[in-house]
Simulated scan of single mutants.
Amino acid sequence: MEAVSYSNFRQNLKKYFKQVNQNSEPLIVTNKNVEDDVVVMSKDDYDSMTETMRIMSNPELMERLRDSEEQFRNGEFKEHELIEGNNEKDVVR
């Protein structure tokens, strides 16, 4: 993870925003006072991280995931062809 000073970050804000979004790599912005340092990340990465934390903090969901993984390892699954179409009835919910 790259680190950049606050003043450099401020002067090159557009460049660093683009970099963070393109590389999906968080950026540490440092300050004179270490307690004021921040991490900048893309919104997509943030959303993904918070969703992962939500799932991992839910015991019921984690149990379902573990059960699904075990079923897959044991070959207890069926393959289905994907339905492609633009009709509302073709959408799987």
Rank of each mutant, 00 (worst) to 15 (best):
N31E: 07
N58T: 06
F9E: 00
N21K: 11
D44S: 11
E79W: 07
D37Q: 07
R10M: 10
T30Q: 05
S7V: 05
V20W: 01
E88G: 00
V91F: 13
N12D: 07
S57G: 11
K43Y: 12
E84Y: 14
E70Q: 14
N74C: 04
R66K: 13
N31M: 03
D47S: 08
R64C: 02
D36L: 14
V4C: 02
E79V: 10
D67P: 00
I83T: 14
S48Y: 15
I55L: 14
T52W: 08
M56C: 13
S68E: 12
I28T: 04
E69G: 04
L27F: 11
D36F: 09
F9V: 00
E81G: 10
M53R: 15
V4T: 05
S68H: 11
N33V: 03
P26G: 07
L65M: 10
M53Y: 14
I55T: 13
K89L: 10
K43E: 10
N23D: 09
N23W: 06
V92G: 01
E81A: 14
S5W: 07
G85I: 04
S57E: 09
V39Q: 09
Q19S: 06
I28S: 00
E88C: 03
F77E: 03
T52Y: 10
K15R: 12
R73P: 00
V29S: 02
D36N: 13
S57V: 02
M49I: 08
Q71D: 12
I55V: 15
E70S: 11
R10P: 00
E35L: 06
M49R: 13
R64H: 06
E35Y: 08
L65N: 06
Q71I: 02
I55R: 14
E76V: 02
E88V: 12
N23M: 13
R10H: 08
L82M: 15
R54M: 13
V20K: 01
I83L: 13
N21Y: 10
E70Y: 06
E70F: 04
Y6G: 00
S68T: 15
R10N: 10
M56Q: 14
V20D: 01
S57L: 11
D37W: 14
N23T: 14
R93H: 08
E88R: 12
Y46I: 02
R54D: 09
G75M: 03
N33T: 03
E51F: 14
D36Y: 11
K14W: 03
L13C: 04
M53A: 15
S68D: 09
E69N: 08
D37E: 07
G75I: 03
E69R: 12
Y46E: 03
D36K: 13
D44W: 10
K18V: 08
E63R: 10
S42T: 04
A3F: 04
E2P: 06
H80W: 11
T50H: 05
S48L: 15
R93C: 01
E35R: 08
V4D: 01
V91N: 04
E76L: 06
V29C: 03
V38Q: 11
N33W: 01
V34C: 01
V4A: 02
N74F: 05
